[in-house]
Every structure is written in C-alpha cells, then in structure tokens.
Amino acid sequence: MFDTELFLESVPTLADAALVTIRLTVVSGALGLLAGALSAAAQLSGVTALRILSRIYVSLMRGTPLFVQLLVVSFGLPMLGVSADPFLAAALAIGLNSGAYVTEILRAGVLAVPAGQIEAAAAVGLSPVRIWTRILLPQAFAISLPALAAELTIVLKSTPLASVVAVTEMTYSGVLIQSRAFSAIEVFVPIAVGYILIAQAILRGARHLEGRLARARA
C-alpha cells in the first residue's frame, strides 16, 4: 500500500531537509580535509611531538563513537564560552571525526609518492614546506581521490546523527513524518534515493577531477 498523497505532501519537506544534509556534508567534509591534511603532514613531519599529537588525535577520533564526540562538542563548546550554533557544532564534530580517517588516507597517499621526487626536489633546494605544499600533498591528494570520495560518502551517511544535537536533516525529517503517519515506505524510498543521488554527485565529481588531474600530470 503506497500512499501517494503522503508521498507528495512529504516531498517539499524532505527536499528542504536534503539541502541541510548537503550543506552539512560539504562543510564537514571541508573541515575533515583540512584537519586530515594538517594531521597527515604532522604525522610524517619527523618532528616527534607533532607525530605523537597527530596519533593521539587519530586514535581518539577513530576509537570513540561519533555520538560521544557530537555531545562533547555541542555541550562542551558553550561551557568554554563559544556560542554553539547546532549546525556548526555538528559540522565541527563530524569534520574532526572524518579528519582522522582522511589523515590515514593522505598518509598512505604520501607514502605512495616515489621517493626519488623528494630527493630531486631537495636537491634543487626546495624548502621542506614547499616540498609538502607543492609536491607531496597535491600528488597524495590525486592518488587518494577515490578513497577521499568514498570517505565523503561516509561523511554524508553520518550526518543523520546530527539530529541528536538538534539539526533536522533528511533522515530525522523523514522520521518526523513517519511517526505522524505510521507509514514508512512513502518517506523511506525518497530518502534512500536522495542519499544515492547525493553520493553519485560526489563520486562523479571526484572521477571528473581525477581525470583532469591525470591529464594535467600527463
């Protein structure tokens, strides 16, 4: 039994909530990439203190549930006097969490860059910072693109957890309708399709970028 009326009535609400999901995914993903790049560089920098710091960060973020991290950021920030907009708090928590996974992805990417390139760059007198920003990170990024895109789809799919800190994204928006209508399928199908479409956009975008980077390198 498919209630077409309920389906049609739900679409505008779900579409609004889909925008929240997309914004949250993009902002969290960007924060995650930034955190991950810094942390990967710290881990491979050869400075012991930085390496340990980065390891602790990765271990804490990966080793504890995202739910706990969301609570700590959402209820901890206001205690430190930082005003916590629910959206920003959620994006920060999800971004920091994703950054730990991005660290490992970029670290593997950097290790895949042929060592000869670094020696050559050092030989022509490039500074270590330059070597990182000009040679290692761009290539590691290109090598890691498929994995980074997959990680962004994971970020997309962890956004529903933001509903515990008062962000009404697509899934929770659907739950609100479901519990009023006592019916799942009319809401459940468009939500599933919504996630698949957003993920497709991410994956296709990444593949497009991968193609362009490959051409630029060739």
Partner: peptide
C-alpha cells in the same frame, strides 16, 4: 522548541543545554 532525536535529550537536560 529545540527539535532533536531522543538520545540527545537526556544528556542535554543533564548538561543544562
């Protein structure tokens, strides 16, 4: 109203959010 999933409500209440 702060509309949120139930698992966030008890921690928030205890934290005074």
């Amino acid at each position: 109203y702060k509309v949120m999933a139930f698992s966030g409500i008890i921690p928030g209440l205890i934290a005074g959010a």
